[in-house]
Amino acid sequence: MVGEISVQNVSKSFRIWRAGLKVRVIDNLEVTISEGELVLLLGPNGSGKSTLLRMIGTLLMPTSGNIVVFGSNTKRRSRTLLNMIGFMPEECKFHAGISGLNFLCYLGRLMGIKSPKEKATRLLEQFGLEKWSHIDVSVYSEGMRRRMGLCSAVLNEPKVLLLDEPYANLDDQMKRYLEEYLNNYTEKGNIVIAASHEKAHFTNYRKIHFPIQRES
């Protein structure tokens, strides 16, 4: 089966220098994801969920195999591919000395968005950060940083939204809002891939269970 995202025989190993170990986190993985799908990468800590998410997001390169996103191989990191991807990491780290609004405008300009300020203001309102938009990101709480991470990931309305532990540190109201937001997001044919170690909030997602890491 050929999907919009095709993970073809992908393996990923990391070398841990001090321990003298080579850990194979993902071993010959084959996955296909179609348009409009909500996918949950489910598994225990260290099982490779975030690694796969990062490989789809071009932050990591597969040790072997290929990942093809809407016809573009992630190894090439083409501009077309980057425009289709939105990524929110598990730890959202932002620049100190820049306000939330300015950071989003900065990313928006890099992404080529025509009126980044309007778009950023609207997103900050949607995710309940309008009062904090002119305040330095370094003073944001963990939950607010995650909301900022979500704003950054959906800024250019990417076709593929990659979210690492999206509900962590969010309050109940925001969790409900995000659940609805993500369900609506896929209605336009976009793909949402989330990685988490718990099933709550992911009821209508296709679940991909991850194997336990092996050492070689």
Binding site: G57, T58, L59, R77, R79, L82, I85, G86, F87, P89, K93, F94, H95, A96, F103, L107, L110, M111, S138, S152, N156
Partner: peptide, 16 residues
């Protein structure tokens, strides 16, 4: 630490 590289890397090319 404060480089926000993950957001930059998924927004534009690394060379830039």
């Amino acid at each position: 630490n404060e480089s926000a590289l993950e957001f930059l890397f998924t927004s534009t090319k690394r060379f830039e």
